[in-house]
Design a protein around this nucleic acid. Structure first.
Lengths: 260, 260
DNA sequence: TAGTGGTCTAGACCACCCC
DNA sequence: GGGTGGTCTAGACCACTAG
């Protein structure tokens, strides 16, 4: 296959772009297939062409086709059954993201407008519990950020976040107000790449102060989500407690059954 | 590589078993690596041998090594960084299952003894909402199972499940009481293979009847989890509402960050 | 039996990280 | 520069499903 350095995905014959400048072939193929699936070319549970046919069509190896299919399978866009074929996933599955979203992205995905009201943003010493989960000594200074999160202007949640910042890193309140998403700043400005998060979800009653901030009656059931976020080096970087009003739902897709 | 039909994983030289009767090489390799990791041969974030070295050691192709590594990566057992190496995941990540567990398995994983108290088990006509999610006509008969779930004898949750059974399938109350796990029966007896579930999690206040069954005060915040379970053909099979007491936590690991 | 996805190989080159 | 993981290929054979 000739090397090209297109920014476009396709050459004149409709083949995928190769070469050092472009995305991996299997990602291009996945994007192409996803586009076809989302444009409604395949109904729910409709079969896709066989892997060998796709390889011929796109002029790539079958292994590359399989990588693209596995990628889309992880995203819930399609699924493969041994001996039967590969099929378009039903709409209900396709909409559910299994991945980690920031509040900002999640809200946009739900069709809402995200907002925030920063209640507090200051350096605090780590208490024993938080020091333990973030792998630091007690009293190590952490950046605490307490925010009311808004959807379409209405309060939906309280976020209380403790951040272990790299030495010398600075995060200004104005910057957070301007950008909205804390994670975007971590990624783009501070070089912190989140890789995984460990979450624990439960229910609690709203305390009077929390109730006031969220505009609900004290004692109202709240969804509480505690999260430890890990960097790409698997260093714990953030501990966060989120309390959401009852109308807010936490949605997820779980795949693969642990029973064999 | 010679074909063998061992039930054992290794031959005399310590190589993995090949041949038609044995598990895929990459799964054997993954099991072997996982065992080494769990036995503490590698500390948190300790580097594993390079892929090429593992391939030599185990006498398999590098691609097979990569498949094994990807499998363990999905399970949170290890992680790979481009250009740096492959590393043992920290203990906190390793413990979190990202997969679908039944209440029975989940409770066992937490070190508890699961139990149940079947409140109701009968055929009921589907109402509009449930008919919609299960893709059946209104009034189609469904099997409704309402249970109090127990951990170490104490009530921790209410499960209200609506099942679309295959024509002619029968599920006896005594069978469920004896086996404990509904999903085991679905898989082993009815040929229903769960593949994915879509979940929505939130918080609600306990109603008087629910409070009585769970042994909490009315108005106590409960964690509510609604679930639609899909078969391997992506047919919705079960709609289930679960309400858990505040002490019960729903834990999960989320990987891959949606921002690139 | 024909067609599908699943596993496996051997080798090549690219991209990234760190010394 | 030397080592690491990431991508890609061409071909072979196995395992499963369905008509």
């Amino acid at each position: 296959m000739p090397n090209k350095t297109h920014t476009d995905n396709r050459d004149d014959a409709g083949r995928l772009a190769a070469g050092t400048g472009s995305a991996p072939l299997y990602k291009q193929l996945a994007a192409d297939l996803q586009h076809k699936l989302e444009s409604g070319q395949f109904g729910a549970n409709a079969p896709l062409p066989a892997e060998r046919d796709l390889a011929l069509t796109y002029q790539v190896s079958r292994d590359t086709v399989r990588k693209a299919i596995r990628l889309l399978e992880e995203q819930g866009v399609l699924y493969s059954d041994h001996g039967r074929g590969t099929f378009a996933a039903p709409e209900s599955v396709r909409q559910m993201s299994r991945f980690l979203d920031s509040f900002t992205e999640d809200t946009i995905n739900r069709g809402g407008t995200p907002g925030q009201n920063i209640l507090l943003m200051e350096a605090v010493p780590a208490n024993m519990a938080i020091a333990s989960v973030l792998h630091v000594e007690t009293s190590t200074p952490l950046l605490r950020i307490k925010r009311v999160r808004l959807m379409n202007g209405a309060p939906v949640g309280l976020q209380d976040s403790y951040l272990k910042l790299p030495a010398g890193a600075v995060l200004q309140r104005g910057e957070l107000e301007r950008r909205g998403s804390l994670y975007r700043i971590l990624i783009e400005d501070l070089g912190i790449k989140p890789s995984e998060s460990l979450e624990s979800v439960g229910a609690v009653a709203a305390q009077p102060d929390e109730a006031g901030l969220l505009g609900v009656a004290p004692g109202t059931p709240l969804l509480i989500c505690e999260r430890v976020m890990l960097s790409d080096r698997r260093e714990p970087v953030e501990y966060c407690e989120m309390r959401y009003v009852p109308s807010y739902r936490y949605k997820t897709r779980i795949s693969k059954w642990s029973l064999d």
